[in-house]
Amino acid sequence: MRKALVSVAGPAVALGVVFATGGPAWAATVTQVPVASTGFFGGFLGVDAVSPFDGWAVGGNGNGMIQRFNGTRWSTFPSPDLQGGDPNNWADLSGVDATSASSAVAVGNSTAAGAVKSAVALRWNGTAWSRQAVPKPAGTDTEFSAVKAFSASDAWAVGQTASSNSTFRKTLAMHYNGTAWSAVPTPSAGTRTNFLTAVDGVTSTDVWAVGYSLNLPYGNRVRQSTILHWDGTAWAQVPSPDNGSTFLYDVAALSATDAWAVGVGTSGAAFVVRWNGTSWNTVAAPPLVNLRGVTARSATDVWVAGAAADSTGTPALAHWNGTTWSVTPVTVNGGAGIPSLSAITAADATTEWAVGSQSDGTTGQSSSIAFRVVG
């Protein structure tokens, strides 16, 4: 994601910095910020901001979750019922993007008790969130994972779709023109599963979507990275590197000749690829695992969110200064269970937000966590 929020309060988190081999010392200060409790199944999946003191975070609690930052803390914000009045249904929100204080889009999914999944889109008009109509052909299920808004009348949401009676899943991209959402054809190279997990772009005619694919036979577990590009006319697949079984989870675009995508390769190792205007190429990755988020201000100022590459697997952030990576572990104060980061985004020249969840493997309960990062 391209933006984040700035907090002015919250308990300090213990700090620690591990510097990548070579390169100057560089440190970040991480502050955990209060988050409203949302029930049994919480956890932030996406975050965005319109100013240092106003922004949105979304996640899942069975009926979708929206929280708003007011400059001090995160608080639950009223949002439409996505369960359709049936407590046996399930819903979550996975992505949010704001273009102004009066315009934002959030996307996710609602699943009926019969396990039929429907993509969901919500619209913020400066006063309230409302649910938008999302096309869903009969006999299919659809799923949104991420959204990128260029204006109140130009946004993309990506994910996957399939016939309800089929195990073959295809990439999905829908465009919002200010009036309605409509599906736009996308390539699906995998013969079994195709999934777009993130979308970003510099302009409405230069948009990237990333994810992964999986080929038959059903015993095959090797994922292939997927990168698609929108040039204003059509989506096309662009060759992308792999590192064993590879998932791409996020993408950040800086210009027509510079973009970053991150994910995981063999055994969950950090995987980073970069666009140079001609091709995507593997670049040095930080000593982390399970990269889930990336945000970039410039070619010498890139952040990623993941976990420590040791037995603890604690959340960690890494910063690229144009020469080397430096790593800052993130310590969670309070709560029980295993914490993880799901997204990171830049607020201004020196501030980022990282969000995620803390899951209890015994009870299944999870809660949202958020951190202000300054460095």
Rank of each mutant, 00 (worst) to 15 (best):
A119H: 01
V120H: 01
V120A: 01
A121L: 01
L122G: 01
L122N: 02
L122D: 00
R123H: 07
N125Y: 01
N125S: 06
G126T: 01
T127D: 03
A128L: 06
W129R: 04
W129A: 04
S130M: 08
Q132S: 10
P135C: 06
K136P: 06
K136M: 11
A138Q: 11
G139Y: 08
T142N: 11
S145M: 14
A146T: 05
V147C: 10
K148T: 07
K148G: 03
A149Q: 08
F150E: 10
S153R: 12
D154V: 05
A155I: 05
A157M: 08
A157S: 10
A157F: 09
V158F: 09
T161R: 12
A162Q: 12
S163Y: 08
S163V: 07
S163W: 01
N165E: 10
F168L: 13
F168W: 08
F168T: 12
R169M: 08
K170P: 00
K170F: 06
T171W: 03
T171D: 14
M174W: 03
H175T: 06
Y176T: 02
Y176I: 05
Y176M: 06
N177C: 10
W181K: 10
W181Y: 13
S182M: 11
A183N: 09
A183H: 04
V184W: 07
V184P: 05
P185R: 10
T186I: 09
A189K: 14
T191V: 13
R192Q: 14
R192I: 04
T193Y: 15
T193C: 03
N194L: 01
F195H: 08
F195D: 13
L196S: 04
L196V: 12
T197Y: 05
T197D: 09
A198I: 11
A198S: 14
V199G: 03
G201K: 11
V202M: 10
T203F: 08
T203K: 11
V207M: 09
W208A: 01
A209W: 03
S213R: 05
L214W: 00
L214F: 02
N215V: 00
N215Q: 08
N215F: 05
L216H: 00
L216N: 06
P217Y: 12
Y218H: 01
Y218K: 00
G219P: 00
G219W: 02
G219C: 01
N220G: 02
N220Q: 05
R221D: 00
R223A: 04
T226I: 07
T226D: 06
T226G: 00
I227P: 02
I227M: 04
L228G: 03
L228T: 03
H229R: 14
W230Y: 12
W230E: 01
G232S: 10
G232P: 04
T233S: 13
T233N: 11
W235C: 08
V238C: 07
V238L: 13
P239H: 11
P239M: 14
S240L: 11
D242I: 15
N243P: 02
G244D: 12
G244S: 15
S245C: 15
S245P: 08
S245Y: 14
T246Y: 07
Y249H: 15
Y249C: 04
Y249S: 15
L254R: 13
